[in-house]
Amino acid sequence: MKITLTVNDEVHPLEVEPRRVLADVLREDCRLTGTHLGCEHGVCGACTVLVDGRAVRSCLMLAVQCDGRSVRTVEGLRGPGGEPHPLQRAFSAEHALQCGFCTPGFLMVAAGALAADPTIGEDPDRVRALVESNICRCTGYEPIRRAIVRGSCPGSVA
């Protein structure tokens, strides 16, 4: 099928089999390998991307479902001038990543929520719900929680 994905503001006309999942099309057809596959059954969240601004599991969505829609991946998180997203800085500052494999998924879950509501970092319950969305095997999560608070509330330290 012919589809068009707008990924990180760039238009990608693509020819894909209906069965190809969004994650594979992003990684292989769009060559955006920052979206990782950790479980391919919707649990771990490493593959989380934003579709029309909403965080979804790109392993449980078909690329054809996204025809004409807008997708944002970790590669599209930097600002227009190439400056890092506050969450990217905060993750580093809080040592919220070790192997880095799950990191793009956590960043996108948090970035989607933050774009929808810039005050989310002020609500500990909602931050917790974000961290509870994905799996990390290295950090023990607490640094990720602190990083989301830090990245959401510039100037604050959790």
């Binding site: 919707g42 969240g45 989380t48 909403r54 965080a55 979804v56 599991r57 449980l60 969505m61 879950v109 929520a113 719900a129 974000l130 509870e132 969305s133 994905n134």
Partner: peptide, 12 residues
């Protein structure tokens, strides 16, 4: 609702 999987699954 909060018992159903997690937010990215609940979004779809």
């Amino acid at each position: 609702a909060p018992n159903i999987a997690h937010p990215p699954i609940r979004a779809l």
